[in-house]
Amino acid sequence: MPLVIACGECSWPLPAELWNRVEGARCPGCRQPLEIAVFPAIERTRGGALPQPAQGEGEASCFFHLESRAVTPCDECGRFLCSLCDIEIDGRHFCPTCFKSGMAANRLENVETRRTMYDTIALVLATLPLMLFWPAIIGAPAALFTVVRRWRAPLSILPRTRIRFYLAALFASAEIAGIVALVWAILRVRPGPS
């Protein structure tokens, strides 16, 4: 069942007469002003091409569905795929297995749904524990480890610099140097025999 275009305030379904009005419209339910921009995709029927049955002996069949005719090979592993198994991303064709492994390995940037911001984590590890002073003994090395370990990890898919990594490394190094100096000073100023 297609989604019904509804009012954002009262969820009342909005009739087609109100769509694409230059002067705007009002919801029949709550009378709130609306602007409804509807595009031709709403008339498009859903569903892709059905797989065709393989006709004869010499015809390539799908690796996953032997009874279906192959329409394209997978660009990663070369397996033949029917139209049901073919996953097209930016002009490249993938089988479900390669698509899944590509998603897991973050190799398909255009379908990624999540990224961890290691630079922010490193910066937080470098700065937040410092507020309570002693937790910095753990926080600073952890921040430095994160910077080194995750330096090559992909950052956001949006424009973003590595400034947080640099700052985290700078703060963490300074904290570690400070902690070492403090421990050295404490050890030097031992109370003498009285």
Partner: peptide
């Protein structure tokens, strides 16, 4: 960060209330 992509070819409507 969590990403949601909407292809321009797939957008059916935008409703501003």
């Amino acid at each position: 960060e969590y990403y949601q992509r909407f292809a321009f070819a797939d957008i059916q409507a935008v409703v501003i209330t």
